[in-house]
Simulated assay, not measured.
Amino acid sequence: MKKLLSLCLAVAMSLSLSACGNPTTPPSGSQGNSSVGSQTSQPDPSGKTLSLGTASLGGNFFTMGAAAASVIMDATGLSVTAQATGGSVYNVGAVNDGELDLGMSQASAVASGINGTDSYEGMATEDIRTLFNFNATPVHILVKKSLGASNVTDLAGAKFECLAPGDGVELATMKLLPMLGLSLDDVTLEYSGSRVQASSRLKTGQVDAILDATGLGASWIADIYGDGSDWTLLSLSPDQINTVVQGAPEYSQMTIPAETYSGQSEDAVTVGLWTTVYCNASMDEDTAYSIVKSIMEGKEELVKAHSFFSDLSPENISDACIAPLHPGAEKYYKEAGVL
């Protein structure tokens, strides 16, 4: 943990230096902002450095990426840089184009890239290869109680928070609402730019709802939910879940147990995604193998950095493997007995 704290100090320095340089051009085939910050492990004597694309500074992805970079370095001797980026959609394109070595994304963004749909319409990311899944992220359908909604279909006219163009929240909202029976023509999509601003707008009633695939007990959801007197988590019907799973296989049924948030009296049955980590197909087999092995064997240290790592397990690869497995990852999972 001391290492992680010292690494955080490096972020401020790297941001100050990057502000003096030329702006980075986003890679082709990607959406969102380019890399805006980094957190780097000790240099590798061989000179090899791997970049890991996460999301915005201060968010769960960046914290988890920084922890993963530290664990990989300790176990393998590789130098790894956790970079703050535009998030899930951006990372897929950047890794495919060779601008990043590793990326973290919600499975929906990987599926869009592999299939050449949504943000990647007509430009499939064919060079993405799966390494492992970090954690399950159930879709929290957080809605103001004053709307009186008991189903997503009751939310015609509502304002949905989407954070920023290309963000995973926008992607989930635009993909899921029509599948759940609510036309995008019947809602307003709002873009606050960040979770901090979105939280303020939600709590002050400027926005009515949000669909966010995030880990159980996410602090920013808990902050908005409060004691449950003003907000509710909607459940999906069996038919809605079946429609989503059949139409978008990257999703699976998940449950947000009662009392996950203060005042939440009932389970919220929903769909969800896995956070997946991937690389470019050009990564050599030994490097990919050592990265996967170091992460799986470093779970204890990772959980100390973030509770979301509690889901980490080799068996997770069978729950969601949207992009083809990298041969090095496949070698590890066969040794672990899960393939």
Rank of each mutant, 00 (worst) to 15 (best):
A69F: 05
S70D: 15
D74T: 10
T81C: 08
Q83R: 11
T85L: 02
G86F: 03
G87T: 03
V89A: 10
V89W: 01
Y90D: 00
N91P: 06
N91F: 00
N91R: 07
V92R: 06
V92E: 05
G93A: 05
G98S: 04
L100T: 00
L100A: 00
L102K: 00
L102T: 01
L102Y: 02
Q106I: 08
A107T: 12
S108F: 10
A109M: 15
V110D: 05
V110A: 06
A111R: 11
S112A: 15
G113M: 06
N115G: 07
G116H: 14
T117S: 12
T117Q: 13
D118E: 14
E121Y: 15
A124W: 09
E126T: 15
D127V: 11
N133I: 09
F134R: 12
F134Y: 15
N135S: 14
V139K: 02
L142P: 05
L142C: 09
K145R: 14
S146W: 01
D154S: 04
A156K: 11
A158Q: 07
K159T: 12
F160Q: 04
F160N: 02
D167G: 15
L171R: 12
A172H: 09
L176C: 11
L176Q: 11
M179Q: 14
L180I: 12
G181L: 09
S183A: 12
S183W: 05
L184W: 01
